[in-house]
Design a protein around this nucleic acid. Structure first.
Lengths: 233, 233
DNA sequence: CCCGAATAGTGTGATATGTACACCAAGGAT
DNA sequence: ATCCTTGGTGTACATATCACACTATTCGGG
């Protein structure tokens, strides 16, 4: 019998469960922080985990991620990209579960964390001081997310998603230093920024303990991404 | 009742079918080519598609990809990385199918294409002259693969996976030009290569229609990847 | 007023990298 | 010998990176 949409038997092949998990990163308290939820139910009840949930029948993977994001933060208008898909056979004690991990990047003033239906509570954690034992393989997912963000800093304007609409250059530099985990030379940072032509001054200043700092904003006409000019590692 | 491994009901949530598809890229006939199979059965019977298959119960996604790779090429010892996961609801007429796409990069002298159990035939196609209508959303997957390969050329040594163990510098340059789809200056190319310190001369030469060309090989102690020194796009 | 502290902002020199173009080297054929 | 084909090298200019030094602006205290 020829297969058609009417008589196709999907159970002929293994069908795992599929979740979309969202690593939500932001800058808060001079720190790069991720939103984690405390799981309320087995498996890993009481453990901290990346928010996520099963992909529904008629939604794309991205839509699933956005749904989870809205459930955990109340917003969806943030930078979101697919990270990686984790699918080792034993990663979830319930059954075979494949997780499509996403990375959301946002500024702290944009979101209001709340615990979704499957979580006891939600909390911000420093990416540099995570809970001792995360659920599932979520430590690997977080590691992957940080690596991806650092990598993306080099070529794209993603870093600006972590900042409010207006920021000073020392604030921008501090953000980069926090994410990269290293100190940057102020003069060189400013020079690279000027050369990139992705920010413009607002004309306003912010009071500081010393000299007032000029406020900048991300340029709407800035290039979002660039290509390198190298050919080898 | 508390959930445990014994009484967990996986059917509580939607369970899509999951496939691992492998984009196998190589350099043949002065061309960047991809191995495609002609589908033997519905859906898209008679259409060319990326080799792939359903992920089995006790294998990881990577193992599934390697199994498919071995089935289509006879080898598994090639460069393989996960590309992206495609999961739009209507992408497969059979049922809900999520595809974890992988990229395999290999030299042409390493593999022997054969049609797996679900294909009428296997054939190399130029990435620059693909069949008019590919199955599923495989045109998008191929597009993604080419973009990834080009991107990886800049920072990693992946390009060398496409070449035989020994190669001349004009051959290496031609490979880069084919992949990038642009001409490169020979002197500048050689200078960048020398600076990268990733190849070493073998001491042997290859006869050409003109001056003999020195043979090189990829250095085993070469760095596999590098970080840029940029901070903005 | 001056000074020091705190913070913001700028300049210089050495080195590395990118780009375009010109030229030299080594073989084969005539 | 010359010409063609292919391989290999050098130069000048522009741009980018890095380390370090220095200037600018506010505030508070003596």
């Amino acid at each position: 019998m020829l297969e058609t949409a009417e008589n196709y038997d999907a159970s002929k092949y293994e069908r795992p469960s599929v979740t979309a998990d969202v690593v939500i990163l932001t800058l808060r308290e001079q720190d790069l922080q991720v939103l984690l939820i405390k799981r309320a139910r087995w498996p890993y009840d009481g453990s901290w985990a990346i928010p996520g949930g099963f992909v529904e029948k008629d939604e794309s993977l991205r839509q699933a991620a956005l749904r989870e994001l809205r459930e955990e933060t109340g917003v969806t208008d943030v930078y979101l990209e697919q990270l990686y898909t984790f699918g080792d056979p034993g990663r979830d004690p319930r059954t075979r579960v494949i997780t499509v991990a996403y990375l959301a990047v946002t500024s702290a003033d944009q979101i209001d964390p709340r615990a979704g239906s499957d979580a006891a509570e939600a909390r911000w954690w420093s990416m540099y001081a995570l809970p001792p034992s995360l659920a599932f393989d979520h430590d690997q997912i977080l590691d992957y997310a940080l690596t991806r963000l650092r990598y993306k800093l080099e070529y794209t304007a993603v870093g600006f998603q972590l900042l409010p609409k207006e920021f000073t250059l020392p604030e921008l530099q501090a953000a980069y230093e926090i994410i990269l985990g290293e100190m940057l030379d102020k003069g060189n940072f400013r020079k690279k920024l000027a050369r990139a032509n992705v920010v413009e001054p607002t004309g306003q200043y912010r009071q500081t303990a010393g000299r007032p700092a000029e406020l900048y904003r991300y340029r709407q006409d800035a290039v979002a991404e660039t290509r390198a000019r190298r050919l080898f590692p």
